[in-house]
Design a protein around this nucleic acid. Structure first.
Lengths: 112, 112
DNA sequence: TTACTTAATCGTAATATTGCAATATACATA
DNA sequence: TATGTATATTGCAATATTACGATTAAGTAA
């Protein structure tokens, strides 16, 4: 027998592109380290990777990994400046994220 | 040497309660099946578990598992009605979720 | 009581995520 | 060139998540 799914992995094939996109963005926010990074970037506008490492309190490779995930969905951008990398929020994707929770789910209906 | 972390698990201890709460809510939205369930519940207002199973296209135990996660953060409620369970959105937590992405991250600043 | 319906739970297999040490890379400086 | 600085990558250990078959539990109906 052939399976239409892969054991353990999310079945992205049975959802719409919008549902997968919403989930991908929410998933990135779904870790407190990345919430903290996002809040910090909002506060300071832009900063180098080392500042984020100091701010959050995780090891440098762990922060680097979280930053990569945030970059992959386009939520932040990293600009190389010598040996340093300056990170800032990508306004377009940040706004997309906000729109999702404003509009994508529509207005709330009363629960009976 | 003693470690202050548990290998593989998220270090919730180094974040604020708000950061952990935001992450917990976003994490639940961070799977397309749960996005689809939420959208469906918004559309039909309330329905029994079996309808969700038919709608989404995952096995019944898998849907049951997703529903439990949504219940755990309070996003939905399940009311037993005979052999059936009627699910609906919990307006309070739904609004909290929306507030988070309206207010918690503040207004966007321009990226240099 | 027996059979059916509905949904939750258990058990399991597989992938995904989290975290860090060690290392690699790339630039800067002496 | 050699040393230092800053960040990314690799490798690994451990936990977490996803998915489903089998079973259980609880109500309903014959």
């Amino acid at each position: 027998m052939q399976y239409t799914y892969t054991m353990g992995a999310t079945r992205t094939d049975i959802y719409t592109a919008e549902q997968n996109r919403i989930a991908a963005i929410a998933k990135v926010i779904g870790h407190p380290a990345r919430v903290a990074i996002l809040q910090y970037l909002i506060k300071v506008d832009s900063c180098i990777c080392g500042e984020i490492v100091d701010e959050i309190g995780l090891a440098q490779p762990t922060i680097s990994q979280h930053l990569r995930e945030m970059k992959q969905i386009g939520l932040i951008r990293g600009e190389i400046d010598g040996t340093k990398v300056c990170y800032c929020i990508n306004q377009d994707v940040y706004n997309e994220m906000k729109q999702i929770f404003d509009n994508a789910f529509g207005q709330k209906i009363t629960c009976s």
